[in-house]
Amino acid sequence: MANNDLKTASVLAFERKLDPSDALFSAGKWDDRNQGETWANVTVREKSVRGTISHRKAGQGAGAAKLSGEIESPNPQTIDTATLPNSADTLRARFTLRVLGGAGTPSACNNAAYQAKLQATVQDYVNTTGFAELARRYATNLANGRFLWRNRMGAEQIEIQVRQLAQGVATQCWQFDALSFSLRHLDTSSPELDALAQAIEHGLSGQSHTLLEVIAYARIGDGQEVYPSQELILDKGDKKGQKSKTLYKVGNVAALHSQKIGNALRTIDTWYPRGEADEDLGPIAVEPYGSVTSQGKAYRQPRDKADFYNLLDAWVLKGKAPEIGDRHFVMATLIRGGVFGEKD
């Protein structure tokens, strides 16, 4: 039942419940992936290249002659790069993933009445629906190797090994052929996938401590380039002589940002509104407004009341439970974490 006096807390924050580490890169031979050998770290190094001017330029009339001179000039660049050694054909990416309970419990909330209603709403979801569907989708994104991003493209073989750890010892192990799973459809089922999903579900529901070690092996070819995260340099200062591409590294080991891995794991939203042109898009990452920055588009628009805030307010403040897909979306956003208070 709705409470007309209840308002959204002005301070409302949630901690993320899927907590991945950075993924560090190493290299070796495909046939040695289960032999226990120490794999060599993939390092980041600089190289300078003599490129050409290829980006769009405008020039007409008197400016055409100047433009002609510019595009005929070389374009020297210094960039970061990361490659496998010439004696290694396989990329190894390793990270750990903590799955925490307490989804829907705010880490900060300055309105006790709102918090009580919110937690009652979440508990009703847990009792009637549970985390099984969300856990299965998170597990699928581990099994299909989505977190490898560009490193997944063109790989000849990809094997994903997942171990559940307790006191540093593996208690359960699962192995997946990543290329046998689709990136567009999250309805695949197998005994191994179901068991991994159950472990994630137990972590989200607080039934057990869930710590997973994830190791991906991607066979891409001797000496081939690999793709760590690229750093976003906000303050470039004097651009002259600066690198045009800076790759992420831990020490000098090439790595993927934990945020990039988290984005891949939560790419489970197939419930967003879509038009005919969006039918082939597949799942998008769980974001309050359904934002896909690579397309410059937000699929969950407030005008359609399909965004997280409208759905949450209707559910908690007005007692109007959304459709089952949107309920999953709201809970997945709370698992994602963030600051969701209503400003004055």
Rank of each mutant, 00 (worst) to 15 (best):
K117E: 10
Q224I: 08
K320D: 12
N4C: 10
K29I: 15
G325H: 04
N252E: 13
W149P: 02
L84I: 12
L204C: 02
G28M: 06
L24K: 12
Q115N: 11
E159G: 04
S182H: 08
L311C: 08
S107A: 09
P288Y: 06
I324E: 15
N263G: 10
G275M: 09
K305A: 12
S208V: 11
G203S: 07
R50D: 11
S180G: 07
A314F: 13
V99D: 01
I53C: 15
R184P: 06
T8V: 13
M1A: 14
R33S: 07
P283E: 04
R274Q: 11
Q167R: 10
Y299K: 01
I158L: 00
G241K: 04
E192Y: 02
D194V: 12
C109V: 02
N75A: 12
G282W: 02
Q301F: 15
D31H: 10
K236L: 14
H55F: 09
S10K: 10
Q60D: 15
Y227H: 10
L183Y: 00
V226S: 01
G296F: 05
R56F: 15
A103W: 08
D313A: 06
A139N: 02
Q259F: 15
A321F: 06
M153V: 11
A2P: 14
D89M: 03
Y248T: 09
A82S: 08
S182I: 10
T90W: 00
H209R: 15
Q175K: 08
W315Q: 02
T188N: 02
T78S: 09
P228Q: 02
S208Q: 12
T43V: 11
N41F: 09
Y272F: 07
T171R: 15
W271F: 09
H257Q: 07
T105S: 11
M153W: 14
R184M: 09
R163F: 07
L232Q: 13
K239R: 12
R94S: 07
G102C: 04
A199T: 02
R98P: 14
L142I: 05
A197G: 04
G251E: 06
L312F: 05
L256T: 08
T83V: 15
N41I: 11
Q242E: 13
A139S: 05
A27F: 05
S258H: 06
P20D: 06
K305G: 08
A264Y: 01
Y248D: 13
R136W: 04
R94T: 09
E15D: 10
S205L: 15
W174G: 01
A255D: 06
N75S: 13
W315R: 02
F329L: 08
Y299N: 02
L186A: 00
P288R: 06
Q164I: 13
G338R: 00
Y125F: 10
H185K: 10
E276K: 14
N144E: 01
G104D: 13
K29F: 15
L91A: 01
A321Q: 08
F340W: 04
